[in-house]
Write a protein that binds this DNA or RNA. Structure first.
Lengths: 348, 348
DNA sequence: CTGTTAGCGCGTTCAC
DNA sequence: GTGAACGCGCTAACAG
């Protein structure tokens, strides 16, 4: 709300009636006690139905609403969930990445449905205790971290003593925090099998293996190949932003490399590869098959439409929120692993 | 923070030392008063430098941080800014739209830099008073609305009595709220001039004119054409999501329409058009020039790279935040109109 | 330079 | 069925 009291504030939600800034004000006007107001407006406790109606009508008339901050302070909660985007391995990624923004949108919907606000924060993990600081500031009742990035150590440390933490990312054995994520190893295998089925033999993997999600995709990809092919796969380290992945792909093709099958660790990378290849006269899918990962909405309208390993973002968001809220309620819950699915389109 | 007191909560940030949950606890341990703690930790007021250091060290040692909620309650502020995404004209748009997510990311950065949290909320304007409700709930010190959508009436009504409101969107004369936005009329004109310069004469505009931003782009586009061409421009109403814009574009070309120059109201629409055209054997840019709007990061890696009217999102976010914070501080400020710029790439 | 104290706006016993 | 009083954790006078 606006600053109160002795501030230079001139702007206020100015209802037609007198200023009602607290339940005390309303109590005075209504001729009842503050606790009656509280009971009427929260619906908690027992109260004569007529009194309740009268108070509510009066509150409406004055445009009065309970102050959520004070309410939360009193209740020892904040009513908000923090959603953090660590940008450890790749500055500028994430929110420029359609995958993360889609996730964010679904999280917002899901949290709103459960009466929670979504407090968003991008983090450039300069200080090692960025997560600890956030948790300790007490601004939220729980934290969802989108992507492990290269911050595994930080997550481990905080996860050990703070339980209301759920992370979107790679599933690990014995992680001290909850995770929800796609089975990246299985996803990598799907890509490998598809490229093999297409008769591709000169294979390459484009991705940043600093982040465990991508490392797992690479691992699953390699494991699903016959040993002779596996040994020849080219691993191309690449950043996740459109600009840098495009630049890296261009350089790669310009250097004369000519794989006939490429697995990209994300759809953005996949689209960059297609675009860079086109510039060098490499025709997709005739001369080269490209498989992405994520199935962002744009994959469908890419030219050609991108074959990709689909992650169910909406389901992921649902599970993240469900798990976290159960944790906050004190329940004992387990991490979730989602199955990926191959979506065949024109790029392969 | 976690629920406190009599909750079933078992998980806590458990520092090595004793539990320190409030400045009172820390005061006891340090052997000083609560106000000394407050002064030491906030840096406000005067305090012996040694005492300050000692208290800070002690706080660190116990992993104690000031409770932001209580702090804000006391200060009569919330420390958060609401960012609302009305989905009036187009469900599912916005967060799936790279433009909006890029904006969101920049807003998050900019707000964080000024010590504010970003409270995000997607709104399906079912109830006419969605904005009023949000404002009155007192959860934030101010509100940024991204896109007017078709909610002009709501914005007008709220803007008249609530001043801490800034809207990204079309600039209008006599709007009762602050706006920051690109000069969409000028942007439309840039697109028109570019297509004319390319020798294109059979022109089309793809966009949803329910939203004032897009209506202004169309208007600027038409106004910059010679009368004879203007009369023949085809206006193709289209939704903004990738799926629906792609479907609409496909249908349009399948019906035999063959414009040689297209102005798309957004880059997503532009990419959809290119993709749909390719499916029908229409080669871009040889047979048809396509100009988008926004210059999202993906425009650069599209195939072919998309010519577009660039909006400076980062600058827009900066101005939105600056204006709002000045308003909150009680300053008198004016709306901002940003100049668009044409970026020529391969699609035209 | 530091301590005491009175609230910020609300929810919740415990009386009546 | 309703009211009085206390306190959530913090800041800012006002004293000393």
């Amino acid at each position: 709300m606006n600053a109160k009291g002795p501030s230079p504030q001139k702007s206020e939600v100015r209802p037609p009636k007198a200023e009602v800034r607290s339940i005390a004000d309303l109590a005075r006007i209504a001729g009842v006690s503050v606790s009656t107001i509280s009971r009427a407006l929260t619906g908690k406790g027992t109260l004569n139905e007529k009194t309740r109606e009268r108070v509510r009508a009066l509150a409406d008339e004055h445009g009065f609403r309970l102050n959520v901050a004070a309410q939360n302070l009193r209740l020892g909660r904040t009513g908000a969930i923090g959603v953090l985007l660590p940008l450890g391995h790749d500055r500028g990624q994430h929110l420029s990445d359609p995958f993360f923004s889609a996730m964010l949108g679904h999280l917002a919907d899901e949290l709103a449905e459960h009466g929670y606000d979504l407090l968003m924060s991008r983090v450039l993990p300069g200080r090692a205790n960025w997560l600890d600081d956030f948790v300790r500031s007490g601004r939220t009742d729980g934290v969802i971290v989108i992507g492990q990035s290269n911050q595994g150590a930080v997550l481990d440390a905080v996860g050990r003593h703070y339980r209301n933490l759920v992370v979107w990312g790679a599933h690990g054995t014995d992680l001290p925090y909850l995770t929800v994520g796609t089975d990246n190893v299985a996803g990598g295998a799907l890509a490998a099998e598809h490229l093999l089925a297409r008769g591709r033999r000169r294979l390459a993997f484009f991705g940043n293996v600093e982040a465990p999600e991508f490392a797992a995709r690479e691992q699953g990809f390699l494991a699903a190949l016959p040993p002779d092919l596996r040994a020849q796969v080219e691993i191309v380290p690449i950043q996740l932003t459109p600009e840098s992945s495009f630049a890296a792909a261009s350089a790669y093709f310009a250097a004369g490399n000519r794989p006939d099958g490429v697995f990209a660790a994300s759809d953005i990378i996949g689209m960059s590869i297609v675009s860079a290849a086109a510039e060098q006269g490499i025709v997709v899918p005739e001369a080269m098959s490209v498989v992405g990962f994520d199935d962002i909405l744009l994959a469908r309208i890419a030219t050609p439409p991108l074959t990709t390993v689909r992650q169910d973002i909406a389901e992921g968001a649902r599970r993240l929120v469900a798990l976290l809220l159960q944790r906050i309620a004190g329940a004992d819950v387990a991490s979730v692993l989602l199955e990926p699915r191959l979506v065949e389109r024109g790029s392969s």
